[in-house]
Nucleic acid binder design. Sequence first.
RNA 1: GGUCGGUUGACCGAGUGGCCAGGUAGCGGUCUGCAAAACCGUGUACGGCGGUUCGACUCCGCCACCGACCUCCA
Length: 491
Amino acid sequence: MQNNLHIFNSLSRKKELFRPLHPPFAGIYVCGPTVYSDTHLGHARPAITFDILFRYLQHLDYKVRYVRNITDVGHLENDADEGDDKILKKARLEHLEPMEVVQKYMDTYHRNMEQLNVKGPSIEPRASGHIIEQQMLIKELLEKGYAYIVNGSVYFDVKKYNEKYEYGKLSGRVLDELQSNTRTLEGQDEKRNPFDFALWKKAAPEHIMRWPSPWGEGFPGWHLECSAMSYKYLGEVFDIHGGGMDLQFPHHECEIAQSTAAHEKEPVRYWMHNNMITINGQKMARSLGNFITLDQMFSGNNPLLKQAYSPMTVRFFILQAHYRSTVDFSNEALQAAEKGLQKLMKGIETAGKLKPSAASTVNIDDLREKCYSAMDDDLNSPILLSHLFEAVRIVNSVSDGSAKLDEKGIASLKDLLNVFTFDILGLKNESAGKEDEELTGNLMNIIIDLRKDARGKKDFAASDKIRNELNKIGIILKDKKDGVDWERNPI
RNA sequence: GGUCGGUUGACCGAGUGGCCAGGUAGCGGUCUGCAAAACCGUGUACGGCGGUUCGACUCCGCCACCGACCUCCA
């Protein structure tokens, strides 16, 4: 299978031609959310970025296995020994079972993803469902001498690992520097070195998320799940690993260390990292308290929002920037995106009504090539969109006669718009059919008002015509004392 | 403090050693009874200062400012 897709590999810091290990198969692992709170705008970025990758690889006829996990245990507030599990903390706060918290926010995440038209992954494994696999990995690491047990917890020995392998290669960090720069956290006594990280944590007596293990009752560390689950579903070495840039260190670095140490192989061939969404120039994050949840985006119910923005407006907004750039939230930018999206959708509707000419004055094949080039250049969605607007310009020109297309050209143009807009960028036409009921009501009000004017002027010919014509299409008007009612005639 | 990245026109946002991004808004025109839409045209954009070059927004150096990561974060 040939393709010309180049992706920026965070590991080499270069664009590389994508060649999967076992064509026609392609394996992708992306870090999903920790489900302890509402899904926010920031979550939409990786979801959409890797949705585009998933869709494009499928379009190129790869058999893609896309694994995106749900973290439902093990994500600690910090690396200190008494660091709380995020989910556990939330459960205590809301007086819920931890798994009730997980269910609630996982459902929200799924609902929001569906609204954004993000395709579900092939497999969506949960950390809590892979405790055995995680323990197996720990055993392997202990046997190979890359982990040590202290007081019922197990830690990864970064220094030992760094003797044979290179810790920090993904994030460009050098262990010596890390050592001197690590901030001192309370309660790190158990670890041999501050940059060692937990594979298994002993559960305190009051800790309710706990599993038995050879090292005592406890729970897995955060970094471990991704190594265990990617290995289980994609193998020792797989093609693409994605996630947010903020996960590069320490999460992905630790993942590489765990997997490499256990399997003696580099686990990932292409690392891809999406950039952050900022608000007023700062990262949007729960911990900064400046985030907007997706439900708020869609309803407009947040002081930072001047209006509601539809899921497709949000998707289009995100696609207008390249995934490796930061994109700054503002109402003006969202409003511009809303208008742009409308223009694109209207253009596609117009494309369906074009009349063919005998010959063509524009070349659609060239444009198609450009669209592919844009996608092949590290998923350059903003450039692709600019080409789609060029396509829309052609549509409108043909529509008002300043350009001509033959039947084949029109078919090709329509196909291009459909494939790239809907299949690959995953946009959809939200206005189609949506507000029909509301529109009908408004139209009827206008018609009834016109008829009232006619009757006021004793123009009964006009008023009767309105009533009769409506009758013909199954709408019955009823003149009452206090106004006019209408209903559909049940034919 | 360390590491990395950014600074593009009214706003958002691509990109490149010499030519065009694109969207939104503005202005002028075509069309139209009026309007809208659409189409055409339009704006001396590339943080500052030097350097390399026939030519730099694009390469190099310095400076300023902003941000990310180094602790959890998509």
